[in-house]
Amino acid sequence: MLMDDVIKALPSFLWTDGTQWTGLAVTAKLFLYAGAIGMSLAVVLALLKVYGPKPVGWAIGTFSYFFRGTPLFLQLMLIYYGLSQFDIVSNGWQDGNAFWLLFRDAGFCAVLAYVLNTAAYALEILAGAFAQYPKEEIAAAEAYGMSRWTTIRRIVLPGALRRVIPVFSNEMVFLLHATALSSTVTLMDMTGVARTLYADTYSPFFPFLMAAALYLVCTFALLGLFRGAERRWLAFLRPRQS
């Protein structure tokens, strides 16, 4: 590959190939949507699993067991290619049903798969943090006359969310890496750009090395952000500096 081709390919790796958003822009979008929605879902499901009625807890446990026990790649295939098998979905597509048409959109399906997968892992971590929350803090809240829900809202939730930051940094790196699968459902994320470039030029080194380098940079940036978050929000757990 010539230097010219490399320079020409750079914009498509970062933001656009001239006609649509591609590369890093698409990866970032998928990651941010999936991360934000997945984490919010995880918080709700974890609360329901720990404090909700038993049958709800079992249902959430089954959901999490399925999504943690099967490959994300297959979950994505199940959602994007699999759902067309059902008449209700294919009829919905023919009738122009707005809800079912969403499942024809590769971006929507990818985000949905990542959301469910991330939520399945994160909710277990959070549920663990809720269940093992320091008893003293809860007792103190009770002594102040807080109700159960107030205690959860004011003490357990913020405290547990802070304590899981180090574990969540790993989960977020996994999510970033998971978005590389988007190229299997026709999306032009960084991996998609690399695979297209490889298919066009038949030269594997530049496309995949470039994608690898970009992912490496993103991973380190993400880890740096989380280290900052730990310094800021976990300061209260550090030994006191004299």
Binding site: L181, F205, A212
Partner: peptide, 17 residues
């Protein structure tokens, strides 16, 4: 720091080449 898929494509196609 690199997704498995990218690593796999790099090592498989790049390695062969």
């Amino acid at each position: 720091g690199i997704p498995e898929l990218v690593m796999m494509l790099l090592l498989f196609f790049g390695g062969e080449k």
